[in-house]
């Protein structure tokens, strides 16, 4: 019962707006704004009308959606490894950030889509160009948050670990990274949405597959229900990926003290 109520509370506004949109678009009858039901129909046609042997999925799913997803996740994963690795090293170094700080501040200030022309010239059209764009744009929040997080280890934790002669490997994996994890996750969430944006933008330039390409292509042939379908898909993807990341975060940061902690406190000393 409470789950039903919770679902309603979270989704009633969303669903209400969709219904309102449906009514408005039907009244307006504007070809640029097809009603949601038409978009839904188009979605079914576009992606879920395939043969049984392919789980009802159409070629579009395999040719456009999966490669796009691969680019987002691939680029983001590279950014995570780079960001956490480099961030840990810089966070532990006393002077490292003094040297690279201004450089990072400058580089992260450049809007990543503006570098697509540069990467196009350097790397030509292809997966490398797209991955580079995604990595370059999404690495900064992870990197800078990791530096911050690594520095949040307190003096007593450091003394405790030193008094046990904790070897480097254990110090990093059992103390430094867990201490930095809350900050790292904040960076990961931010960078994931940036990665999604950059995937679409990089696919809008001179390629022939991917969600971004299909979005532009359907707009160019005035297939507005299709164009809207791709936009809805992007929304759903962003929502799904974020939800997935949140689930992982809840699992990995389960140790964090919550407001329920006082009730969980055991009595006696």
């Amino acid at each position: 019962m409470s789950t039903v109520l919770g679902f309603l509370r979270r989704w009633s506004l969303f669903l209400g707006l969709v219904v309102l949109w449906e009514l408005a678009t039907r009244l307006a009858n504007d070809p640029f704004f097809p009603p949601p039901t038409t978009i839904l129909q188009k979605i079914g046609e576009l992606w879920f009308s395939g043969p049984v042997s392919r789980l009802f999925l159409t070629d579009d799913v395999y040719v456009d959606i999966l490669p796009s997803l691969g680019r987002v996740l691939g680029g983001w994963s590279i950014a995570v490894v780079l960001g956490v690795g480099l961030g840990t090293a810089l966070g532990r170094s006393r002077t490292g950030m003094d040297y690279v700080g201004p450089l990072f501040a400058f580089m992260r200030a450049i809007p990543p889509p503006t570098l697509i022309p540069v990467f196009l010239v350097l790397l030509s059209i292809g997966t490398t160009m797209k991955l580079t764009t995604i990595v370059f744009g999404s690495v900064w929040p992870i990197l800078l948050n990791t530096v911050d997080g690594v520095r949040s280890v307190n003096a007593t934790q450091r003394d405790t670990a030193r008094s046990f002669r904790t070897p480097q490997r254990y110090w990093i994996t059992l103390v430094v990274l867990p201490a930095a994890l809350p900050k790292i996750f904040a960076g990961l969430r931010l960078s994931l949405s940036i990665a999604l944006i950059l995937m679409v933008v990089s696919e809008m330039v001179g390629v022939t597959d991917g969600i971004g390409f299909e979005l532009i292509f359907s707009q160019q042939r005035f297939d507005f229900p299709a164009m809207w379908s791709w936009i809805v898909l992007l929304g759903a993807l962003g929502y799904g990926l974020n939800a997935l990341l949140l689930a992982v975060e809840r699992r990995m940061l389960g140790w964090q003290q919550t407001s329920g902690a006082t009730t969980a406190k055991t009595s006696g000393a």
Binding site: N154, T156, Q157, D159, L174, P178, A179, W255, Q256
Partner: peptide, 8 residues
């Protein structure tokens, strides 16, 4: 409280 590691 600072010496014990809260994530362990």
């Amino acid at each position: 409280s600072r010496s014990l590691f809260p994530w362990l």
